[in-house]
Amino acid sequence: MNLFVEGFAWILDPANWSGPGSIPERLGQHLAVSATVLLIAMVIALPVGALIGHTGRGREAAVMVSGGLRALPTLGVLTLFGLWIGIGLTAPILALVILAIPPLLAGAYAGFESVDRRTVDAARAMGMRELQIVGGVELPLGLPILVGGIRSASVQIIATATLAAYLADEGLGRYIFQGLKTRDYAEMLGGSILVIALALVVDGCFALVQRIVVPAGVRATRTRELRSRPARSRAATG
């Protein structure tokens, strides 16, 4: 436990809060890389997932792709891209995007799919066009699950961005590798505590968003079915 005291002391040390490689700078890098990756991966995965969830076509393929990508060892993908592209931020960002796609894809198609087909049919019968159904019916109803996918993706991105410091001078993970090299356990532990705190805060924020985006109409009927198990609405909520 003594070591943890040293780790916290390292975090609180004013010397680590200014100059190059300071905690605010590393934290900013970590957040910037994670946000960039999340945005790129969302642009790729969400429309595809929405299409699969809406049409119900290509579902097996999506399950296979996201399952297969999941088995890929993160470190292997990172180092392979690092060798191909060279030291720098491009390799980790590309690798992180690939690794972030499975949870986003799963969240998107599970979200769109979770909407009761009778609701969709009713919307169609009322004369809504397909795009209106996607945007006005399926998206709001599936949003909590979709946000759940974004939540697990973002937590995973933050974790992998830590590991990416192995190939690039980037993010909070740098402290872990630096401490490993100079045998400075307080620095490693301090860096780890910061990473854990960041991951938990982001996870908590998305958990909150997940609650907020539940449509009012769904929330109103929810208390009655508290005890019944939702068929698939739990998917991808992490």
Partner: peptide, 13 residues
């Protein structure tokens, strides 16, 4: 939600 690398470092103490 805890990143693996951070957990590996935090467990020994």
């Amino acid at each position: 939600a805890i990143p693996s690398l951070a957990l590996f470092v935090s467990l020994p103490p």
